Amino acid sequence: MATGGRRGAAAAPLLVAVAALLLGAAGHLYPGEVCPGMDIRNNLTRLHELENCSVIEGHLQILLMFKTRPEDFRDLSFPKLIMITDYLLLFRVYGLESLKDLFPNLTVIRGSRLFFNYALVIFEMVHLKELGLYNLMNITRGSVRIEKNNELCYLATIDWSRILDSVEDNYIVLNKDDNEECGDICPGTAKGKTNCPATVINGQFVERCWTHSHCQKVCPTICKSHGCTAEGLCCHSECLGNCSQPDDPTKCVACRNFYLDGRCVETCPPPYYHFQDWRCVNFSFCQDLHHKCKNSRRQGCHQYVIHNNKCIPECPSGYTMNSSNLLCTPCLGPCPKVCHLLEGEKTIDSVTSAQELRGCTVINGSLIINIRGGNNLAAELEANLGLIEEISGYLKIRRSYALVSLSFFRKLRLIRGETLEIGNYSFYALDNQNLRQLWDWSKHNLTITQGKLFFHYNPKLCLSEIHKMEEVSGTKGRQERNDIALKTNGDQASCENELLKFSYIRTSFDKI
């Protein structure tokens, strides 16, 4: 039985969820670079991206490699990797027998973001014989899940209580170790020597080791999670996991709180800001991140802002960003909400898709409305799209047979046209069989910064309504002859009103 693990408890099935942008060198404390989270699957090609990484700022997932063999891993080693800020997950990587050479110096898994409450997941690794993470000293947050690894031993010899604050939620089941077939031998045991430290858990006094050649490092209890030197002297209180010299914040392997210019500090002093819960960055760093993602459509890219001495992905609820200094300031009234469309555009074809934009005031991208039916549609669209004030790209209304009016965009005031449909149009209306009105132009103002209007096959939309939009939106004169079809717009509506004058002759039985 794995020490510190839980057996036999019912657990939810383990679901495996399925960018080499360097964020800056980590400095003297770390020998390499800070790398983003990685999802490495199918083959070993991307694994080489770990070569210079000291910190993975995010998670590391290595999974679904069915053609790899043990010899493929023999020359692979990433000794610079010290810390993973989120979680480490391995799933069905064939041929991998140990992690001792792959990650010989991995010391800390912070667990800032977890995989279903777990910071370390080893699942269905069919050839893994031992973990071998002999320098792993601290899992700051989260638990361990090690399950269905039929060859995995050296679990009962690990004292997880020396690595985690609590072992109650560890789930370590259905491994070879369960069948008591392992016969784990710690260093020196074969020669009758006791080389590794022994600890007591559940009444068992057991030597602690990761492999037959690597003991588990056990520091004096007084050192807590700070770690200790090879001689057993406690590291500085700002260290986490390990250090090369005692009581020196510049000799830590990793930091308990924050890293700044080669030393570990309790908090980031001005003019620095907390970033990702582990390091200090200056304003320029946060500003660069903001600008890199301002026009990016890459998933996970955030326009970072500053709030409460932190550089964070977005302002919290009730705050909006001051564009001059990136500071989050309290909103006066309802907060603006910028919604970034991942692929640059979004099609609204149902109430469900409209709900995804609920509360958005600025759309960074283009909207395509293609709704053919739905219950209580006008009210639903207004509830979900009615706060949109600005669209950076274009607005396209296409084959939306259920629409009679666009009044559900009740606050839309600006279409920038930074991206144009077919390279020309910022407003595009095609084949809307029941569209009769755009907006009530006596109450609604709309500016279209650039781009043209396109109207074709809107049989109940009168040309007068379209011409009014040209005047109000500032697009009059931009359109070419064929942009607004004269014969297919309003051709099934009563669009022309003329005053009919009647004269009559009164007659009676005795007068003409």
Results as ranks from 00 to 15, higher is better:
residue 128 L to R: 01
residue 36 P to Y: 13
residue 320 T to K: 07
residue 112 S to L: 12
residue 142 G to V: 02
residue 42 N to G: 14
residue 83 M to Y: 10
residue 327 L to S: 09
residue 159 D to Q: 03
residue 30 Y to M: 03
residue 153 C to W: 00
residue 232 G to I: 02
residue 147 E to K: 15
residue 301 C to D: 06
residue 111 G to F: 03
residue 327 L to I: 06
residue 216 Q to V: 01
residue 215 C to L: 03
residue 198 A to F: 12
residue 289 L to F: 02
residue 263 R to G: 08
residue 144 V to A: 06
residue 306 I to K: 02
residue 103 F to Q: 00
residue 157 T to S: 11
residue 222 I to M: 10
residue 165 D to S: 10
residue 115 F to V: 05
residue 108 V to G: 05
residue 282 N to W: 15
residue 199 T to H: 10
residue 303 Q to G: 10
residue 283 F to E: 07
residue 294 K to V: 11
residue 80 K to N: 07
residue 87 Y to P: 04
residue 207 E to A: 10
residue 179 N to Q: 08
residue 210 W to E: 02
residue 289 L to A: 08
residue 190 A to V: 11
residue 55 V to L: 06
residue 55 V to Y: 10
residue 128 L to S: 02
residue 223 C to H: 01
residue 50 L to A: 11
residue 77 S to A: 03
residue 209 C to R: 01
residue 290 H to W: 14
residue 285 F to R: 02
residue 35 C to R: 01
residue 191 K to R: 10
residue 215 C to S: 02
residue 173 V to S: 13
residue 68 T to P: 09
residue 89 L to P: 00
residue 62 I to R: 01
residue 110 R to H: 11
residue 190 A to S: 09
residue 166 S to M: 09
residue 141 R to S: 03
residue 176 K to L: 07
residue 46 R to P: 10
residue 79 P to F: 08
residue 59 H to P: 07
residue 293 C to M: 00
residue 99 L to N: 01
residue 235 C to F: 01
residue 259 Y to C: 08
residue 61 Q to K: 15
residue 47 L to E: 14
residue 265 V to G: 07
residue 73 F to S: 06
residue 43 N to K: 09
residue 216 Q to W: 01
residue 63 L to N: 05
residue 195 N to I: 12
residue 289 L to W: 05
residue 308 N to I: 03
residue 277 D to R: 08
residue 83 M to S: 12
residue 233 L to R: 13
residue 155 L to W: 04
residue 282 N to E: 15
residue 226 H to V: 06
residue 41 R to T: 08
residue 167 V to M: 05
residue 156 A to H: 05
residue 44 L to D: 14
residue 78 F to G: 00
residue 44 L to I: 10
residue 211 T to R: 01
residue 131 L to T: 04
residue 326 L to V: 15
residue 143 S to F: 08
residue 159 D to I: 05
residue 276 Q to T: 11
residue 277 D to S: 12
residue 247 D to L: 11
residue 201 I to P: 02
residue 158 I to S: 01
residue 115 F to L: 03
residue 215 C to R: 04
residue 82 I to A: 12
residue 268 C to E: 00
residue 200 V to K: 02
residue 222 I to W: 14
residue 336 P to H: 12
residue 117 N to M: 05
residue 60 L to V: 11
residue 205 F to N: 08
residue 321 M to P: 14
residue 305 V to P: 04
residue 107 T to K: 06
residue 325 N to E: 15
residue 84 I to P: 00
residue 199 T to N: 07
residue 203 G to V: 10
residue 88 L to R: 01
residue 85 T to I: 05
residue 241 G to E: 02
residue 279 R to G: 14
residue 130 E to F: 12
residue 297 R to W: 07
residue 91 F to Y: 06
residue 105 N to H: 05
residue 29 L to E: 12
residue 239 C to F: 00
residue 98 S to R: 06
residue 215 C to Y: 05
residue 153 C to F: 00
residue 306 I to S: 06
residue 118 Y to I: 00
residue 168 E to G: 03
residue 60 L to T: 02
residue 175 N to Y: 03
residue 243 C to Q: 01
residue 31 P to L: 13
residue 160 W to P: 00
residue 100 K to I: 07
residue 31 P to C: 14
residue 180 E to D: 05
residue 75 D to M: 14
residue 33 E to Q: 11
residue 48 H to F: 05
residue 323 S to C: 11
residue 128 L to F: 08
residue 162 R to A: 13
residue 169 D to F: 14
residue 229 T to H: 08
residue 149 N to H: 01
residue 249 P to S: 09
residue 44 L to V: 09
residue 227 G to E: 01
residue 157 T to L: 03
residue 180 E to K: 10
residue 243 C to H: 00
residue 294 K to Y: 11
residue 109 I to R: 00
residue 60 L to S: 00
residue 250 T to R: 11
residue 260 L to I: 13
residue 303 Q to T: 03
residue 274 H to R: 03
residue 130 E to C: 06
residue 91 F to G: 00
residue 88 L to W: 00
residue 189 T to L: 09
residue 152 L to F: 01
residue 68 T to F: 06
